[in-house]
Design a protein around this nucleic acid. Structure first.
Lengths: 212, 212
DNA sequence: CATCTTTTGACAGCTACTCTCATTTCATGG
DNA sequence: CCATGAAATGAGAGTAGCTGTCAAAAGATG
Protein backbone atom coordinates (compact mmCIF):
# COMPACT_ATOMS: atom_id res chain seq x y z
CA UNK A 1 0.00 0.00 0.00
CA UNK A 2 1.77 3.01 -1.25
CA UNK A 3 0.25 5.53 1.05
CA UNK A 4 1.80 3.96 4.11
CA UNK A 5 5.42 4.42 3.20
CA UNK A 6 7.08 7.74 3.65
CA UNK A 7 10.71 7.36 2.63
CA UNK A 8 12.18 9.65 0.05
CA UNK A 9 13.10 8.31 -3.31
CA UNK A 10 15.43 5.43 -2.43
CA UNK A 11 18.93 6.81 -2.95
CA UNK A 12 17.87 8.43 -6.20
CA UNK A 13 20.82 9.27 -8.43
CA UNK A 14 20.17 12.91 -7.76
CA UNK A 15 23.62 13.50 -9.19
CA UNK A 16 23.08 14.38 -12.83
CA UNK A 17 19.45 15.06 -13.29
CA UNK A 18 19.60 18.27 -15.25
CA UNK A 19 18.74 21.57 -13.66
CA UNK A 20 15.18 21.31 -14.87
CA UNK A 21 14.45 18.00 -13.22
CA UNK A 22 16.10 19.07 -10.02
CA UNK A 23 13.94 22.17 -9.85
CA UNK A 24 10.84 20.13 -10.45
CA UNK A 25 11.65 17.82 -7.60
CA UNK A 26 12.35 20.82 -5.42
CA UNK A 27 9.03 22.54 -6.01
CA UNK A 28 7.30 19.22 -5.60
CA UNK A 29 8.68 18.69 -2.12
CA UNK A 30 8.30 22.37 -1.35
CA UNK A 31 4.60 22.08 -2.02
CA UNK A 32 4.34 18.94 0.04
CA UNK A 33 6.24 20.35 2.98
CA UNK A 34 4.24 23.56 2.92
CA UNK A 35 1.09 21.45 2.96
CA UNK A 36 2.21 19.33 5.87
CA UNK A 37 3.21 22.38 7.85
CA UNK A 38 -0.02 24.24 7.22
CA UNK A 39 -2.14 21.22 8.00
CA UNK A 40 -0.27 20.65 11.23
CA UNK A 41 -0.94 24.25 12.17
CA UNK A 42 -4.55 24.74 11.18
CA UNK A 43 -6.00 21.43 10.08
CA UNK A 44 -6.84 20.04 6.68
CA UNK A 45 -10.06 21.81 5.78
CA UNK A 46 -8.89 25.21 6.95
CA UNK A 47 -5.89 24.98 4.66
CA UNK A 48 -6.55 26.32 1.16
CA UNK A 49 -4.53 25.73 -1.92
CA UNK A 50 -3.78 29.43 -2.12
CA UNK A 51 -2.11 29.31 1.27
CA UNK A 52 -0.13 26.29 0.21
CA UNK A 53 0.96 28.05 -2.95
CA UNK A 54 1.96 31.14 -1.04
CA UNK A 55 4.07 29.29 1.49
CA UNK A 56 5.66 27.15 -1.17
CA UNK A 57 6.34 30.32 -3.17
CA UNK A 58 4.66 29.18 -6.32
CA UNK A 59 1.39 30.12 -7.98
CA UNK A 60 -1.80 28.16 -7.32
CA UNK A 61 -1.81 26.98 -10.91
CA UNK A 62 1.54 25.37 -10.32
CA UNK A 63 0.22 23.49 -7.33
CA UNK A 64 -2.50 21.97 -9.46
CA UNK A 65 0.00 21.22 -12.15
CA UNK A 66 1.95 19.09 -9.73
CA UNK A 67 -0.95 17.52 -7.88
CA UNK A 68 -4.35 16.97 -9.47
CA UNK A 69 -6.20 17.33 -6.18
CA UNK A 70 -5.51 18.67 -2.74
CA UNK A 71 -5.77 15.19 -1.29
CA UNK A 72 -3.03 14.02 -3.60
CA UNK A 73 -0.60 16.45 -2.04
CA UNK A 74 -0.96 14.54 1.17
CA UNK A 75 -1.11 11.04 -0.18
CA UNK A 76 0.76 10.70 -3.43
CA UNK A 77 3.99 8.84 -3.30
CA UNK A 78 5.86 6.81 -5.83
CA UNK A 79 6.63 3.60 -4.02
CA UNK A 80 4.35 1.19 -5.75
CA UNK A 81 7.17 0.23 -8.13
CA UNK A 82 9.47 -0.28 -5.16
CA UNK A 83 6.97 -2.60 -3.55
CA UNK A 84 6.57 -4.42 -6.82
CA UNK A 85 10.30 -4.95 -7.10
CA UNK A 86 10.69 -6.16 -3.55
CA UNK A 87 7.82 -8.53 -4.13
CA UNK A 88 9.33 -9.90 -7.29
CA UNK A 89 12.59 -10.59 -5.51
CA UNK A 90 10.94 -13.01 -3.12
CA UNK A 91 11.12 -16.71 -3.95
CA UNK A 92 8.22 -17.83 -6.09
CA UNK A 93 7.33 -20.70 -3.78
CA UNK A 94 6.86 -18.45 -0.77
CA UNK A 95 3.21 -17.81 -0.05
CA UNK A 96 2.01 -14.38 -1.06
CA UNK A 97 1.01 -13.59 2.49
CA UNK A 98 4.50 -14.36 3.73
CA UNK A 99 6.03 -12.30 0.97
CA UNK A 100 3.79 -9.41 1.82
CA UNK A 101 4.72 -9.58 5.46
CA UNK A 102 8.35 -9.44 4.48
CA UNK A 103 7.96 -6.66 1.95
CA UNK A 104 6.01 -4.41 4.27
CA UNK A 105 8.55 -4.96 7.01
CA UNK A 106 11.35 -4.18 4.62
CA UNK A 107 9.56 -1.17 3.18
CA UNK A 108 8.94 0.37 6.56
CA UNK A 109 12.52 -0.28 7.55
CA UNK A 110 13.80 1.53 4.47
CA UNK A 111 11.38 4.37 5.07
CA UNK A 112 12.70 4.98 8.54
CA UNK A 113 16.30 4.49 7.53
CA UNK A 114 17.92 7.89 7.18
CA UNK A 115 15.72 10.20 9.25
CA UNK A 116 13.61 8.18 11.69
CA UNK A 117 12.00 11.11 13.46
CA UNK A 118 10.91 12.85 10.30
CA UNK A 119 9.65 9.65 8.73
CA UNK A 120 7.68 8.72 11.80
CA UNK A 121 6.08 12.11 12.20
CA UNK A 122 5.16 12.25 8.56
CA UNK A 123 3.70 8.76 8.57
CA UNK A 124 1.61 9.47 11.64
CA UNK A 125 0.36 12.71 10.12
CA UNK A 126 -0.62 11.03 6.89
CA UNK A 127 -2.31 8.03 8.40
CA UNK A 128 -3.97 10.27 10.94
CA UNK A 129 -5.43 12.42 8.18
CA UNK A 130 -6.52 9.28 6.41
CA UNK A 131 -8.44 8.21 9.47
CA UNK A 132 -9.99 11.58 10.28
CA UNK A 133 -10.59 13.47 7.03
CA UNK A 134 -13.16 11.78 4.81
CA UNK A 135 -11.79 13.29 1.62
CA UNK A 136 -8.33 11.99 2.33
CA UNK A 137 -9.57 8.56 3.30
CA UNK A 138 -11.56 8.52 0.13
CA UNK A 139 -8.49 9.30 -1.89
CA UNK A 140 -6.53 6.64 -0.06
CA UNK A 141 -9.12 4.10 -1.04
CA UNK A 142 -8.79 5.14 -4.65
CA UNK A 143 -5.07 4.64 -4.57
CA UNK A 144 -5.70 1.37 -2.82
CA UNK A 145 -7.31 0.03 -5.95
CA UNK A 146 -4.21 0.97 -7.95
CA UNK A 147 -1.97 -0.86 -5.54
CA UNK A 148 -4.48 -3.67 -5.69
CA UNK A 149 -3.83 -4.16 -9.38
CA UNK A 150 -0.17 -4.40 -8.56
CA UNK A 151 -1.00 -7.16 -6.12
CA UNK A 152 -2.98 -8.87 -8.83
CA UNK A 153 0.09 -9.08 -11.01
CA UNK A 154 2.17 -10.50 -8.20
CA UNK A 155 -0.48 -13.04 -7.37
CA UNK A 156 -0.90 -14.04 -10.97
CA UNK A 157 2.77 -14.94 -11.12
CA UNK A 158 2.61 -17.02 -7.97
CA UNK A 159 -0.55 -18.93 -8.55
CA UNK A 160 -0.44 -19.41 -12.29
CA UNK A 161 -3.75 -17.65 -12.61
CA UNK A 162 -4.61 -14.77 -14.87
CA UNK A 163 -4.23 -11.35 -13.31
CA UNK A 164 -7.81 -10.62 -14.30
CA UNK A 165 -9.29 -13.67 -12.68
CA UNK A 166 -12.15 -12.75 -10.44
CA UNK A 167 -10.56 -14.62 -7.57
CA UNK A 168 -7.30 -12.77 -7.99
CA UNK A 169 -8.91 -9.36 -8.22
CA UNK A 170 -11.18 -9.97 -5.31
CA UNK A 171 -8.50 -11.42 -3.10
CA UNK A 172 -6.18 -8.50 -3.81
CA UNK A 173 -8.80 -5.90 -3.01
CA UNK A 174 -9.78 -7.77 0.10
CA UNK A 175 -6.19 -7.65 1.25
CA UNK A 176 -5.84 -3.96 0.51
CA UNK A 177 -9.07 -3.12 2.29
CA UNK A 178 -7.97 -5.06 5.31
CA UNK A 179 -4.53 -3.46 5.41
CA UNK A 180 -6.00 -0.01 5.09
CA UNK A 181 -8.41 -0.72 7.91
CA UNK A 182 -5.49 -1.85 10.03
CA UNK A 183 -3.88 1.54 9.48
CA UNK A 184 -7.06 3.33 10.44
CA UNK A 185 -7.33 1.16 13.53
CA UNK A 186 -3.79 2.13 14.40
CA UNK A 187 -4.46 5.85 13.95
CA UNK A 188 -7.67 5.66 15.95
CA UNK A 189 -5.67 4.38 18.90
CA UNK A 190 -3.18 7.23 18.51
CA UNK A 191 -0.47 5.04 17.04
CA UNK A 192 0.06 3.35 20.39
CA UNK A 193 0.21 -0.19 19.04
CA UNK A 194 2.99 -1.72 17.05
CA UNK A 195 1.94 -1.28 13.44
CA UNK A 196 3.90 -4.29 12.25
CA UNK A 197 2.17 -6.45 14.79
CA UNK A 198 -1.23 -5.21 13.63
CA UNK A 199 -0.28 -6.02 10.06
CA UNK A 200 0.80 -9.51 10.98
CA UNK A 201 -2.52 -10.13 12.68
CA UNK A 202 -4.31 -8.66 9.69
CA UNK A 203 -2.61 -10.95 7.21
CA UNK A 204 -3.33 -13.88 9.50
CA UNK A 205 -7.06 -13.49 8.91
CA UNK A 206 -6.54 -14.48 5.27
CA UNK A 207 -6.02 -17.93 3.87
CA UNK A 208 -3.67 -18.49 0.98
CA UNK A 209 -5.23 -18.22 -2.43
CA UNK A 210 -4.99 -21.70 -3.94
CA UNK A 211 -2.93 -22.09 -7.10
CA UNK A 212 -4.77 -22.37 -10.36
CA UNK B 1 -23.36 -3.70 0.69
CA UNK B 2 -26.03 -1.11 0.64
CA UNK B 3 -25.19 0.43 -2.67
CA UNK B 4 -25.93 -2.75 -4.56
CA UNK B 5 -29.56 -3.09 -3.67
CA UNK B 6 -32.15 -1.07 -5.47
CA UNK B 7 -35.54 -2.03 -4.06
CA UNK B 8 -37.81 0.62 -2.76
CA UNK B 9 -38.58 0.84 0.91
CA UNK B 10 -39.91 -2.65 1.67
CA UNK B 11 -43.69 -2.29 1.78
CA UNK B 12 -43.39 0.91 3.76
CA UNK B 13 -46.59 1.81 5.57
CA UNK B 14 -47.04 4.67 3.18
CA UNK B 15 -50.61 4.79 4.49
CA UNK B 16 -50.60 7.47 7.19
CA UNK B 17 -47.42 9.39 6.93
CA UNK B 18 -48.70 12.93 7.10
CA UNK B 19 -48.71 15.17 4.08
CA UNK B 20 -45.33 16.57 4.95
CA UNK B 21 -43.55 13.25 5.07
CA UNK B 22 -45.21 12.11 1.88
CA UNK B 23 -44.08 15.25 0.10
CA UNK B 24 -40.57 14.77 1.34
CA UNK B 25 -40.43 11.25 0.01
CA UNK B 26 -41.82 12.49 -3.26
CA UNK B 27 -39.22 15.18 -3.83
CA UNK B 28 -36.54 12.76 -2.76
CA UNK B 29 -37.44 10.27 -5.44
CA UNK B 30 -38.10 13.09 -7.90
CA UNK B 31 -34.55 14.26 -7.45
CA UNK B 32 -33.20 10.77 -7.79
CA UNK B 33 -35.19 10.00 -10.90
CA UNK B 34 -34.22 13.28 -12.51
CA UNK B 35 -30.62 12.45 -11.78
CA UNK B 36 -30.82 8.97 -13.25
CA UNK B 37 -32.51 10.29 -16.37
CA UNK B 38 -30.03 13.08 -16.93
CA UNK B 39 -27.06 10.86 -16.33
CA UNK B 40 -28.39 8.30 -18.78
CA UNK B 41 -28.76 11.05 -21.35
CA UNK B 42 -25.53 12.99 -20.94
CA UNK B 43 -23.28 11.18 -18.50
CA UNK B 44 -22.35 11.91 -14.93
CA UNK B 45 -19.88 14.76 -15.25
CA UNK B 46 -21.92 16.67 -17.78
CA UNK B 47 -24.88 16.67 -15.43
CA UNK B 48 -24.93 19.63 -13.08
CA UNK B 49 -26.91 19.98 -9.92
CA UNK B 50 -28.75 22.91 -11.46
CA UNK B 51 -30.04 20.70 -14.24
CA UNK B 52 -31.12 18.12 -11.74
CA UNK B 53 -32.93 20.74 -9.72
CA UNK B 54 -34.63 22.11 -12.80
CA UNK B 55 -35.89 18.75 -13.97
CA UNK B 56 -36.99 17.74 -10.50
CA UNK B 57 -38.75 21.10 -10.22
CA UNK B 58 -37.06 22.16 -7.04
CA UNK B 59 -34.40 24.70 -6.25
CA UNK B 60 -30.72 23.74 -6.12
CA UNK B 61 -30.68 24.48 -2.42
CA UNK B 62 -33.32 21.85 -1.94
CA UNK B 63 -31.25 19.27 -3.78
CA UNK B 64 -28.40 19.85 -1.38
CA UNK B 65 -30.78 19.73 1.54
CA UNK B 66 -31.76 16.22 0.56
CA UNK B 67 -28.38 14.92 -0.54
CA UNK B 68 -25.11 16.20 0.88
CA UNK B 69 -23.21 15.50 -2.32
CA UNK B 70 -23.96 14.76 -5.92
CA UNK B 71 -22.58 11.27 -5.57
CA UNK B 72 -25.02 10.58 -2.79
CA UNK B 73 -27.94 11.13 -5.13
CA UNK B 74 -26.76 8.15 -7.09
CA UNK B 75 -25.67 5.93 -4.26
CA UNK B 76 -27.60 6.61 -1.09
CA UNK B 77 -30.04 4.01 -0.06
CA UNK B 78 -31.39 2.98 3.28
CA UNK B 79 -30.99 -0.76 3.24
CA UNK B 80 -28.22 -1.25 5.72
CA UNK B 81 -30.79 -1.80 8.48
CA UNK B 82 -32.60 -4.32 6.28
CA UNK B 83 -29.38 -6.23 5.74
CA UNK B 84 -28.70 -6.08 9.44
CA UNK B 85 -32.12 -7.51 10.22
CA UNK B 86 -31.82 -10.31 7.70
CA UNK B 87 -28.44 -11.12 9.11
CA UNK B 88 -29.70 -11.23 12.65
CA UNK B 89 -32.45 -13.63 11.67
CA UNK B 90 -29.96 -16.24 10.56
CA UNK B 91 -29.08 -18.99 13.05
CA UNK B 92 -26.13 -18.03 15.21
CA UNK B 93 -24.27 -21.23 14.45
CA UNK B 94 -24.26 -20.63 10.73
CA UNK B 95 -20.93 -19.34 9.49
CA UNK B 96 -20.92 -15.66 8.67
CA UNK B 97 -19.94 -16.37 5.10
CA UNK B 98 -22.94 -18.65 4.64
CA UNK B 99 -25.21 -16.10 6.23
CA UNK B 100 -23.87 -13.42 3.95
CA UNK B 101 -24.43 -15.56 0.91
CA UNK B 102 -28.01 -16.08 1.97
CA UNK B 103 -28.67 -12.46 2.87
CA UNK B 104 -27.30 -11.09 -0.38
CA UNK B 105 -29.34 -13.61 -2.33
CA UNK B 106 -32.43 -12.69 -0.38
CA UNK B 107 -31.73 -8.99 -0.67
CA UNK B 108 -31.35 -9.10 -4.41
CA UNK B 109 -34.49 -11.17 -4.69
CA UNK B 110 -36.47 -8.60 -2.73
CA UNK B 111 -34.98 -5.82 -4.78
CA UNK B 112 -36.15 -7.32 -8.02
CA UNK B 113 -39.51 -8.34 -6.60
CA UNK B 114 -42.09 -5.83 -7.75
CA UNK B 115 -40.57 -4.24 -10.84
CA UNK B 116 -37.77 -6.42 -12.20
CA UNK B 117 -37.01 -4.33 -15.26
CA UNK B 118 -36.74 -1.08 -13.40
CA UNK B 119 -34.71 -2.62 -10.61
CA UNK B 120 -32.30 -4.24 -13.03
CA UNK B 121 -31.79 -1.14 -15.11
CA UNK B 122 -31.23 0.96 -12.05
CA UNK B 123 -28.80 -1.49 -10.53
CA UNK B 124 -26.79 -1.71 -13.71
CA UNK B 125 -26.70 2.07 -13.99
CA UNK B 126 -25.52 2.47 -10.43
CA UNK B 127 -22.89 -0.22 -10.49
CA UNK B 128 -21.79 0.95 -13.91
CA UNK B 129 -21.28 4.47 -12.59
CA UNK B 130 -19.43 3.04 -9.66
CA UNK B 131 -17.04 1.29 -11.99
CA UNK B 132 -16.54 4.19 -14.41
CA UNK B 133 -16.80 7.46 -12.47
CA UNK B 134 -14.04 7.88 -9.92
CA UNK B 135 -16.06 10.22 -7.73
CA UNK B 136 -18.89 7.73 -7.47
CA UNK B 137 -16.59 4.82 -6.81
CA UNK B 138 -14.94 6.87 -4.16
CA UNK B 139 -18.26 7.54 -2.51
CA UNK B 140 -19.15 3.88 -2.73
CA UNK B 141 -15.99 3.03 -0.87
CA UNK B 142 -16.90 5.47 1.84
CA UNK B 143 -20.28 3.90 2.29
CA UNK B 144 -18.55 0.55 2.24
CA UNK B 145 -16.84 1.40 5.48
CA UNK B 146 -20.21 2.18 7.04
CA UNK B 147 -21.61 -1.16 5.98
CA UNK B 148 -18.37 -2.63 7.20
CA UNK B 149 -19.11 -1.50 10.73
CA UNK B 150 -22.45 -3.20 10.43
CA UNK B 151 -20.64 -6.39 9.52
CA UNK B 152 -18.45 -5.94 12.55
CA UNK B 153 -21.48 -6.00 14.79
CA UNK B 154 -22.82 -9.13 13.16
CA UNK B 155 -19.46 -10.83 13.42
CA UNK B 156 -19.03 -9.84 17.03
CA UNK B 157 -22.27 -11.63 17.87
CA UNK B 158 -21.23 -14.77 16.05
CA UNK B 159 -17.70 -15.15 17.23
CA UNK B 160 -17.95 -13.83 20.76
CA UNK B 161 -15.36 -11.22 19.96
CA UNK B 162 -15.59 -7.50 20.52
CA UNK B 163 -16.84 -5.50 17.56
CA UNK B 164 -13.75 -3.37 17.79
CA UNK B 165 -11.29 -6.21 17.71
CA UNK B 166 -8.68 -5.65 15.09
CA UNK B 167 -9.41 -9.02 13.55
CA UNK B 168 -13.10 -8.28 13.30
CA UNK B 169 -12.62 -4.84 11.80
CA UNK B 170 -10.05 -6.02 9.34
CA UNK B 171 -11.99 -9.07 8.27
CA UNK B 172 -15.13 -7.02 7.70
CA UNK B 173 -13.38 -4.44 5.57
CA UNK B 174 -11.64 -7.16 3.64
CA UNK B 175 -15.00 -8.68 2.85
CA UNK B 176 -16.49 -5.37 1.78
CA UNK B 177 -13.55 -4.54 -0.42
CA UNK B 178 -13.76 -7.90 -2.08
CA UNK B 179 -17.51 -7.66 -2.66
CA UNK B 180 -17.18 -4.20 -4.11
CA UNK B 181 -14.46 -5.39 -6.43
CA UNK B 182 -16.73 -8.20 -7.55
CA UNK B 183 -19.32 -5.62 -8.54
CA UNK B 184 -16.76 -3.62 -10.47
CA UNK B 185 -15.62 -6.78 -12.20
CA UNK B 186 -19.21 -7.46 -13.13
CA UNK B 187 -19.72 -3.95 -14.52
CA UNK B 188 -16.47 -4.09 -16.46
CA UNK B 189 -17.76 -7.15 -18.28
CA UNK B 190 -21.01 -5.35 -19.08
CA UNK B 191 -23.03 -7.29 -16.55
CA UNK B 192 -22.78 -10.43 -18.65
CA UNK B 193 -21.96 -12.77 -15.80
CA UNK B 194 -24.29 -13.94 -13.10
CA UNK B 195 -23.68 -11.56 -10.23
CA UNK B 196 -24.73 -14.09 -7.62
CA UNK B 197 -22.23 -16.57 -8.98
CA UNK B 198 -19.46 -13.97 -8.79
CA UNK B 199 -20.40 -13.24 -5.21
CA UNK B 200 -20.29 -16.91 -4.29
CA UNK B 201 -16.84 -17.22 -5.75
CA UNK B 202 -15.80 -14.06 -3.95
CA UNK B 203 -16.92 -15.30 -0.56
CA UNK B 204 -15.18 -18.59 -1.26
CA UNK B 205 -11.81 -16.85 -1.21
CA UNK B 206 -12.27 -16.15 2.49
CA UNK B 207 -11.84 -18.49 5.40
CA UNK B 208 -14.14 -18.31 8.39
CA UNK B 209 -13.01 -16.02 11.14
CA UNK B 210 -12.30 -18.26 14.13
CA UNK B 211 -14.36 -17.74 17.26
CA UNK B 212 -12.76 -15.88 20.12
C1' DC C 1 24.36 34.14 -28.58
C1' DA C 2 20.10 32.54 -30.96
C1' DT C 3 16.57 29.38 -31.01
C1' DC C 4 13.53 25.94 -29.35
C1' DT C 5 11.13 23.67 -25.56
C1' DT C 6 9.45 23.35 -21.07
C1' DT C 7 7.75 25.47 -17.06
C1' DT C 8 5.44 28.99 -14.91
C1' DG C 9 2.10 32.76 -13.53
C1' DA C 10 -1.93 35.51 -14.25
C1' DC C 11 -6.49 35.38 -15.21
C1' DA C 12 -11.08 33.97 -16.31
C1' DG C 13 -14.57 30.65 -15.61
C1' DC C 14 -17.23 26.60 -14.01
C1' DT C 15 -19.39 24.00 -10.48
C1' DA C 16 -19.98 21.70 -6.11
C1' DC C 17 -21.17 23.12 -1.80
C1' DT C 18 -22.40 26.34 2.41
C1' DC C 19 -24.96 29.89 4.83
C1' DT C 20 -28.40 33.18 5.69
C1' DC C 21 -32.90 35.01 5.56
C1' DA C 22 -37.43 35.87 3.96
C1' DT C 23 -41.45 33.30 2.26
C1' DT C 24 -44.40 29.62 1.84
C1' DT C 25 -46.58 25.29 3.43
C1' DC C 26 -48.20 22.16 6.71
C1' DA C 27 -49.65 20.86 11.61
C1' DT C 28 -52.27 21.87 15.76
C1' DG C 29 -55.18 23.75 19.44
C1' DG C 30 -58.81 26.68 20.34
C1' DC D 1 -62.28 27.66 10.57
C1' DC D 2 -58.79 30.37 11.95
C1' DA D 3 -54.53 31.74 14.45
C1' DT D 4 -50.21 30.43 15.94
C1' DG D 5 -45.95 27.80 15.69
C1' DA D 6 -42.87 24.75 13.19
C1' DA D 7 -40.91 22.94 9.23
C1' DA D 8 -39.73 23.09 4.29
C1' DT D 9 -38.47 25.87 0.52
C1' DG D 10 -36.36 29.38 -2.61
C1' DA D 11 -33.35 33.11 -3.58
C1' DG D 12 -29.03 34.91 -3.40
C1' DA D 13 -24.37 35.68 -2.09
C1' DG D 14 -20.05 33.66 -1.15
C1' DT D 15 -16.12 30.08 -0.83
C1' DA D 16 -12.98 26.95 -2.74
C1' DG D 17 -11.50 23.29 -5.69
C1' DC D 18 -10.37 22.62 -10.22
C1' DT D 19 -9.80 23.54 -15.54
C1' DG D 20 -8.38 25.97 -19.46
C1' DT D 21 -5.86 29.52 -22.11
C1' DC D 22 -2.14 32.43 -23.21
C1' DA D 23 1.86 35.08 -22.79
C1' DA D 24 6.21 35.57 -20.25
C1' DA D 25 10.26 33.42 -18.09
C1' DA D 26 13.76 29.88 -17.56
C1' DG D 27 16.41 25.99 -19.05
C1' DA D 28 18.37 23.18 -22.92
C1' DT D 29 20.82 22.92 -27.32
C1' DG D 30 23.73 23.91 -31.28
Amino acid sequence: MSSMTTARIPAAPQARLGLRERKKLKTRTAIRNATYALISEQGYDATTVEQIAERAEVSPSTVFRYFPTKEDIVLTDEYDPLVEDLLRERPAEESLLDSLRFVIRQGLRMAVADDPDFAEREMKLRIGLMAKVPAVRSRAMESMSVTGRLMCRAMAERTGRDENDLEVRVYAMGLMGALLEACIYWAERDCQDDLLDLIDRTLATFKDLPKR
